[in-house]
Design a binder for these strands. Structure first.
Length: 904
RNA sequence: GGGCGAAUAGCUCAGCUGGUUAGAGCGUCUGCCUUACAAGCAGAAGGUCACAGGUUCAAAUCCUGUUUCGCCCACCA
């Protein structure tokens, strides 16, 4: 027998040990079964998991466990990401607290600190995932910066370089002056900000030239003024010059099509070194570039002596002040526009001319578009496909070099003696050009995503193309991740896999929603608005946590997380536990043997039909007696089969939230509320209990199997206590929902019974009948139905708190009876002396009104010629039946009301 | 500027391909410690499905427009 209350911490410890001891999470490499493979989106190794990760992990674990229980050879590979910038920043901050600075140490010294930091944080993340019950194959764990992944990164870089898809060049890049590194376009987050538009007069001998700008400080680096070629008036000025205020430089006026004649003044200042657009204009018109802002966001000497060394925002103020003083400032307008910021640190991005490495994306994108177009890869929910497509078809080159130390160092060596640079898989000792020994490796490292995009195959042994895992488990089955990294990661993985593996990385992309806090902000480490999953697990238990998150997360919809919501999961966990206690307690008290030996091959037994056969098929043992199912047994087995079939269908359709609510609904509202209560009649009565015990065990066992992917610990704990259980749950099969268990007749009977019981309870509540008081119940019904009702008398009596049950066509009601009509039956509860006539008259009046309203609607529908002729016949038929039912009910209500009125 | 999503009970949300009386959990009200569970049981109240049109015999559901909120994208000087 199990304890009175479920102990989540103890169960977690016990089953984590057991699962690992059995190597349960490792695939069978020799198996012929179809593989089902997921690769974990690697969390940032220096971070702490937040609730968003928990959602993703829960979804993946649920899929893995369900698939394994459905006969697949499952593999879920864990790993972590070295997260270049994020990690380097936290390590630097930690060092600073100890009074140390990266500037004072060598690269090797700093990296030693970073690795120590990584080890420390990795342990915590691994612990979090373990306590969530994630069914990882830890023996295959990978880290994006470990040795095998370094080999993969080098191979990828060199191959792309050799194909001409990687190049180095001077371009405007997104520069973070705080982190002092280049960034990719994807790392820039645009925020709407209130700023100003400054209108500045550039003196000219050829007329009034006024430019409008949001960045006056960059004027110090202006090398031209541009106008639209469509602007006839201004076009005349092309070739003339203006004088740059403050600096005094003469600037040519050029015409360029990016200029919008409608915007601002129609004149654009051109600063090729500090604006991507202006850079392009500069290229087209062979303009010089003057760098006036340096890598730290301060003004350079080229900006002029009075500005050099000033912070860019201080310089802005000073430039504006000076323009105003000199009479060059025409006006200042308030202006709201979006400003690029670094997504990691929030610093305003500085477009900066700089020499970086880039990946040419267009050739990689083309095949990646095709595989989605022809559905080799599908997105759930499908709308994300469009997001992917629009990005892929407008893709820009990817700046992959980062001015950091923590990361994969770029495998390029420059020669001191010639212009050649060597790109190599193995560290070279001599220059590939002149053969000289004076070579230096590039100081920069690669963008973290340059290792992440290899993630489906780099943990499987690539670049060794004969690696067994690669052959067995690639492509993976599904990628589960958040929509916010479609560009960063999903798209790039597709490109990388097609390029390097020649096949898709995964068949399906399942996008989870974003977990937000109570006021709608995304959960994130930087905001500190996510509770630590381990604290939640301590307080509520893993099963409650997982169940609640799963139930609350429709595919791709954001989830507002609120700790109070965990009550649903906790209460349900308790319900499952308590129901199991009832069943196990009853089984323990049974003296007769319930089942015999396992049906071994030697016995040659074939599963028979009926319940005994179903039992044997489900649990592998035979019953020690001949079961005789009651109608309620057939009903619950039918409901179980429906629930199982629905659950599988929901899984197939990626509606995991519906899986949770479907099982919840069945277990609580069918099994506990009705079947267990009905079972008590036989459990606590005289007579043979073995059939009801077997059915209880069967339904409980199958339910526990269905619950396992959602609630791994409590299910395993209960499973271990079930007398017919064998193995761990992941070694069991997930119920499929056998059609032969469906029983429409039993379901119909159950509906009848529920209606009767509910209406009696209703009447009892309306008249405040004491809970312990037993009332006689009489049901007026056609003989055929009356027989069914009499057959269910014990149950009705127990559930309705009845003293007796009488059913038949001759049942009549008298004044002082409370009666409720339901189609062709009528439930009558004699409550003479208890029913107050006024109250009953009011109650019946309300019922009558409602019924009349419904009837009127149905009659109107049926008298509509168009409805009768055009609606589907079954719909019309249903309405006819409904009319008949309502008419009967109305007549009965009239009758009851008439009865009441007899002596008033 | 372009695109996408959301709007249903006091709160958080289900409602799949149109078809009985629009559901659940929480909260509220009433009555119950009934020998699995008060983290529970039974009952009840509570909704013009954002608004306006349209398609249809029939619309919360499909179409168009509007409003509000949120997200993404864009060379928004």
């Amino acid at each position: 027998m199990i304890e009175k209350h479920f102990d989540p911490a103890a169960a977690r410890a016990r089953w984590n040990r057991a699962w690992e001891a059995q190597n349960l999470f490792r695939p069978d490499d020799a198996s012929a079964r179809e593989p089902f493979v997921i690769i974990l989106p690697p969390p940032n190794v220096t971070g702490v998991l937040h609730v968003g990760h928990v959602l993703g992990d829960t979804v993946q674990d649920q899929l893995i466990r369900w698939k394994k229980m459905s006969g697949f050879n499952t593999l879920w590979i864990p790993g972590t990401d070295h997260a270049g910038i994020a990690t380097q920043k936290v390590v630097e901050a930690a060092l600073l607290k100890e009074g140390k600075s990266r500037a004072d140490m060598t690269r090797e010294e700093f990296l030693a600190h970073a690795w120590t930091w990584k080890e420390h944080h990795h342990a915590r993340i691994a612990e979090q995932m373990r306590q969530l019950g994630c069914a990882f194959d830890w023996t295959r764990e990978a880290f994006t910066l470990d040795e095998p992944r370094s080999r993969a990164v080098r191979e990828a870089f060199v191959r792309l370089y050799e194909k001409g898809l990687i190049y180095r060049g001077d371009y405007i890049v997104n520069w973070c002056p705080s982190c002092q590194t280049a960034l990719s376009d994807e790392e820039v987050q645009y925020d709407e900000r209130d700023s100003s538009l400054w209108w500045i007069r550039y003196p000219s001998a050829h007329g009034e030239v006024v430019v409008a700008t949001t960045r006056p400080e960059t004027m110090l680096g202006d090398t031209a003024v541009a106008v639209s070629p469509d602007d006839a008036a201004k076009r005349a000025l092309v070739g003339k010059t203006v004088t740059l205020p403050i600096v005094g430089r003469e600037l040519p006026i050029v015409a360029d099509e990016v200029v919008d004649r409608e915007f601002g003044s129609g004149f654009v200042k051109v600063t090729p070194a500090h604006d991507a657009n202006d850079f392009a204009i500069g290229r087209r018109h062979a303009l010089p570039s003057i760098v006036v802002i340096d890598r730290t966001g301060h003004m350079t000497p080229e900006a002029g002596a009075e500005f050099a060394g000033l912070d860019r925002f201080a310089a802005r103020k000073q430039v504006v002040a000076q323009l105003e003083r000199d009479g060059h400032l025409v006006k200042v307008e308030p202006y709201r526009h979006s400003v690029g910021t670094h997504d990691r640190c929030g610093t305003v991005i500085e477009p900066l001319l700089s020499r970086q490495w880039f990946v040419r994306m267009q050739p990689l994108a083309e095949p990646a578009v095709r595989v989605v177009e022809n559905d080799e890869i599908t997105f759930y929910p499908p709308r994300w496909r469009n997001v992917y497509m629009s990005w892929m078809t407008n893709i820009r080159d990817w700046c992959v070099s980062r001015q950091l130390w923590w990361g994969h160092r770029i495998p390029v060596w420059y020669c001191d003696d010639c212009d050649h640079f060597t790109v190599a898989r193995e560290d070279p000792s001599v220059c590939g050009g002149c053969g000289g020994g004076r070579i230096r490796q590039d100081d920069d490292v690669l963008d973290t995503w340059f290792s992440s995009w290899l993630w489906t195959f780099s943990p499987m042994g690539w670049p060794d193309e004969n690696a067994p895992d690669l052959k067995r488990y690639h492509p993976t089955s599904v990628l589960v991740t958040g929509s916010e990294i479609i560009f960063f990661w999903v798209a790039r993985m597709i490109m990388a896999s097609l390029e390097f593996m020649g096949e898709v990385p995964f068949r399906h992309v399942f996008l989870t929603g974003i977990v937000r806090d109570g006021i709608g902000r995304k959960m994130s480490k930087s905001l500190g608005n996510s509770p630590d999953p381990l604290d939640i697990i301590d307080k509520w238990g893993t099963d409650a946590f997982r169940f609640t998150l799963s139930m609350l997360s429709p595919p791709g919809k954001d989830v507002f997380f609120d700790e109070e919501k965990l009550e649903v999961g906790r209460n349900f966990t308790n319900k499952v536990w308590q129901a199991s206690r009832l069943v196990l307690g009853a089984v323990e008290k049974e003296a007769e043997p319930l089942f015999g030996a396992a049906a071994g091959e030697e016995s040659g037994d074939q599963p028979g039909g009926g319940f005994a056969g179903a039992w044997q098929e489900a649990f592998g043992s035979t019953l020690a007696f001949e079961p005789e199912l009651a109608w309620e047994d057939r009903w619950i087995l039918s409901a179980l089969a429906r629930c199982a079939a629905d659950s599988n269908r929901c899984y197939e359709e990626w509606r995991l939230n519906d899986v949770a609510s479907r099982i919840y609904d069945f277990f609580w509202h069918d099994f506990c509320d009705w079947y267990l209560e009905l079972a008590k009649v036989r459990l606590y009565g005289e007579g043979d209990r073995r059939t009801v015990l077997a059915v209880l065990l069967h339904v409980l066992g199958e339910s526990i199997r269905m619950l396992h992917p959602l609630m791994p610990y409590v299910s395993e704990e209960i499973w271990a206590a079930l007398p017919m259980a064998s193995g761990l749950l992941m070694e069991n099969r997930f119920p499929r929902g056998n059609e032969t268990s469906l029983d429409a007749e039993a379901e119909e009977r159950m509906r009848l019974m529920r209606d009767i019981v509910t209406s009696v309870r209703n009447i009892r509540a309306a008249y405040h009948v004491a809970p312990a008081a037993r009332v006689p119940v009489r049901v007026r019904a056609p003989e055929e139905r009356a027989a069914l009702i009499r057959n269910a008398a014990d149950g009705i009596v127990r559930l309705a708190g009845a003293a007796s049950l009488e059913a038949g066509p001759e049942v009549a009601k008298e004044k002082g009876d409370a009666a409720t009509p339901m189609g062709d039956i009528e439930v009558v509860v004699p409550l003479r002396g208890v029913v107050d006539l006024e109250g009953e008259r009011a109650r019946l009046g309300r019922e009558r009104e409602k019924t009349q309203g419904e009837l009127a609607a149905v009659v109107a529908k049926l008298s509509n010629e168009a409805f009768v002729t055009r609606a589907k016949p079954e719909v019309v038929e249903r309405e006819r039946e409904r009319r008949a039912r309502l008419e009967t009910e109305l007549a009965r209500l009239q009758e009851s009301i008439g009865l009441l009125g007899a002596d008033t």
